[in-house]
Design a binder for these strands. Sequence first.
DNA 1: GTCTATACCCGGATAGAC
DNA 2: GTCTATCCGGGTATAGAC
Lengths: 179, 179
Amino acid sequence: MAEGRRVEIVAAAREILEAEGSSALTMRAIAERVGIRAPSLYKHFPDKAALEVALVAVGLAETAEIFEEAIRNAGDPVGALARAYRAWALGHPHLYRLMNDQPLPRERLPEGLEARAAQPLIGATGGDLAMARATWGLAHGLTSLELASRFPAGADVDAAWAAGTAAIAVGIGRRTPSS
Amino acid sequence: MAEGRRVEIVAAAREILEAEGSSALTMRAIAERVGIRAPSLYKHFPDKAALEVALVAVGLAETAEIFEEAIRNAGDPVGALARAYRAWALGHPHLYRLMNDQPLPRERLPEGLEARAAQPLIGATGGDLAMARATWGLAHGLTSLELASRFPAGADVDAAWAAGTAAIAVGIGRRTPSS
DNA sequence: GTCTATACCCGGATAGAC
DNA sequence: GTCTATCCGGGTATAGAC
């Protein structure tokens, strides 16, 4: 099928991004990995931005799955989600940044994908959107600081996660009477 | 004095960064703003990275002052710090990112500057470093998501800040018996 | 759908005269 | 400490042949 090449190109782009970071993600590098020349990529994607959108979509779909798995049979949904969030981000730092450091290209993303990725967390807060966003903020902030090596050497990041998620969990209980 | 030119160059760099973002922060643009040619900058700074370090130092010193002011006479130190943090970051988004999206160049920063900027928050958590880092994570995460326009249109970001900081404040009270 | 050739623009940084 | 001239490398993207 004609779409096979597109998938192959996105896979190559992802490998480069994850291995060498966004500055290494050039059209020439992607093409070389696929085994073609850079100009040929433009027969499959109109421009580089379109290729990056495909990468973001792949990352969102993957995290949605991870989150859904994390809350299955979890006695502590917030803690389980936090652990899954952090583990995935640390395992895919450059893709994580591509997904989260810029506005989502919502109009070019598959319908419902963003909502699907957000649903597990919203469920964990009992539908409380403010607490869901606060929880996301906490997770994204700790993750970003860790990825950027912004904490001083020797800082106990695990303890910060534990303290933050515990406070959030208590906060959710206080706001949702039906806990 | 000979240092005057350095200060002038850093000021020009800051103006460009804040007005046009990091991609516009080129040696040529900085030089043009100062009224000289790009190569002349290398008589004052060894390379571009050194100039960026100076920008980070300026931002750190400024935020340290802001935070110290915020906790003065504040009945709710965490809330006051959160408001000051958010306001400064939204007012200086590109400098904020330069300061926080990469490792701190600690060995080239004035002695004690990082500690001074961190002190108000550590004080607000009663010396609880884990809670201080969780609070920083929350603030940095909400700020980053807001700066990156990652929340859906219409999302109530104020409510997320309120919910998160309230939960953190309660968490601090629970962990420090001497509240 | 792939290729070669190339346009076009941009960046950081250096050499050497004044 | 400033200048001009320039090196050197890199990027996205297009034209046109095959």
